[in-house]
Design a protein around this nucleic acid. Sequence first.
DNA 1: AATTGTGAATTGATTCACAGCT
DNA 2: AGCTGTGAATCAATTCACAATT
Lengths: 207, 207
Amino acid sequence: MPPLDLQAIPRKTIYRLSIYQRCLQRLAENGVETVSSQALAKAAGVKPTQLRKDLATFGQFGTRGLGYPVEGLLASIREVLGHTRLQPVVLVGVGNLGAALLRYGGFNKEGFEIVAGFDLFPEQHRTDPIPVYSQDELPGFLLEHGIKMAILAVPAAAAQAIVNVLVSHDIQAILNFSPTILEVPGEVMVNNVDLAVELENLSYFVR
Amino acid sequence: MPPLDLQAIPRKTIYRLSIYQRCLQRLAENGVETVSSQALAKAAGVKPTQLRKDLATFGQFGTRGLGYPVEGLLASIREVLGHTRLQPVVLVGVGNLGAALLRYGGFNKEGFEIVAGFDLFPEQHRTDPIPVYSQDELPGFLLEHGIKMAILAVPAAAAQAIVNVLVSHDIQAILNFSPTILEVPGEVMVNNVDLAVELENLSYFVR
DNA sequence: AATTGTGAATTGATTCACAGCT
DNA sequence: AGCTGTGAATCAATTCACAATT
């Protein structure tokens, strides 16, 4: 359910828009006013033509001969990504990885707030700055706070059962760190981050 | 530098092979002897034709009418991925995320061992099971132990400087969690895991 | 009857090349 | 002169459809 899908922006383009956004943020912080597709593409790790094509899917933002206005383009991308308000997120599974993500904080700057963690043994996490509740309290919390996004960092064997709870309580998007494929209804989005597979893939190229 | 690139297996195929491998491992543990492309594809989250095409890039492993022998296919994939010995890996940047990865342990099962961490302030990590050294000791360590792979989890601003050290000391592959594009020579592989971008991407689909 | 292996067809993404502004 | 915007061309990945095999 993409908002404003006048011409359905491709999935990969959306990914790259997030990256452009971050690069533009940095430029804006440094007081840069204008940037060429060449320079911005380099910062984002893509080719200039690709950047221009990506932007072309939803408008025209540059001036020929000059480049793009940093603030203006940033605002336009933000609008497309629909990322104005702070988005609350819950995290399920406060093991090693989950605990780190709770403390990580890198998300807040990007507009996300992990508002609570849930674990089978919440009492082990009294000291964390973000509250950790028992998994029994998950359904109530989701409904009460109108949460739409979840991060999943439980063992593979436990993942699907929790996903079922999540989707039956209105979660629409899941960032999944559990090394297993989740079954979800078509309208729920899942992004998988599989650390072992990333490493394994790299190792293929190490002779 | 892919080993055995008789017909250069596409990058995305390599990714999926790692996933198939894990699914097959599970089947093998459960004593399953034979699996159809249909069943395996489902477990891996892809279409049966894609699985078959992927396997076709490097051989024939099934019997028509029957399916694939679990152990045999597993062995063949392992051979292609070249994943026999335990691969030593260093981790640079022992902040929240880095510290979690050190303790994570999920890699060992997949054939990787994080042998050491490096940080500007190593003394904060006396309690970790894996030793954490000062960053000054990084070059010596890399050469002495013949390390080929690194995980990078430092702030964006520090990333490129460390990458330069890594590549000038023979590192061939980097798993990068720092939210920035790294400049590396062509023969060095980088996989980026950008948690903020993953979340941001998901949030686009939350109406 | 079931299921693989694969050429052909299709779909999608990227890059080229250049016209059109400023 | 420089740089964007974009149709056309290319390249890559996926899916189809079916012959081949057990």
